[in-house]
């Protein structure tokens, strides 16, 4: 995420462009055959996208650490829950 700050764009604009790119990759990955690698890749991309929205759209990168922790924990929990369910299937 630090990388974003070096680009001469507003951080939220850069995030937006990255989000569009990651969404496209996610979409393209969808045509692959089912596998755990695919699941892990898409899930990881999704969590990164979620964190971008939280940090740069919601603007939580500027708030007290406790709130950033709450949101990061939420994303980790949902991602972890999904991963466990898919790995134990």
């Amino acid at each position: 995420m630090k990388l974003l700050q070096t680009i001469p764009l507003r951080p939220c604009t850069a995030s937006w462009l990255v989000l569009l790119g990651l969404t496209t990759i996610t979409f393209e990955l969808g045509s692959n055959a089912p596998s755990q690698v695919l699941m892990a890749a898409v899930l990881a991309l999704t969590l990164v996208k979620g964190q971008l929205v939280v940090s740069y759209f919601m603007g939580l990168r500027r708030v007290r650490p406790v709130w950033r922790l709450v949101m990061a924990a939420y994303l980790a929990a949902v991602g972890g829950l999904i991963a466990i369910a898919y790995l134990t299937a």
């Binding site: 969404t23 996610t26 699941m39 898409v42 899930l43 999704t46 979620g50 929205v53 759209f57 999904i82």
Partner: peptide, 22 residues
């Protein structure tokens, strides 16, 4: 705005989960 970002956030997860991950 915060509420709208939340609606966006859950859709991002929903899209991946329901449409893509298999």
């Amino acid at each position: 705005g915060s509420y709208w970002h939340m609606v966006d956030l859950v859709w991002i997860i929903l899209f991946a989960l329901v449409y893509v991950i298999h």
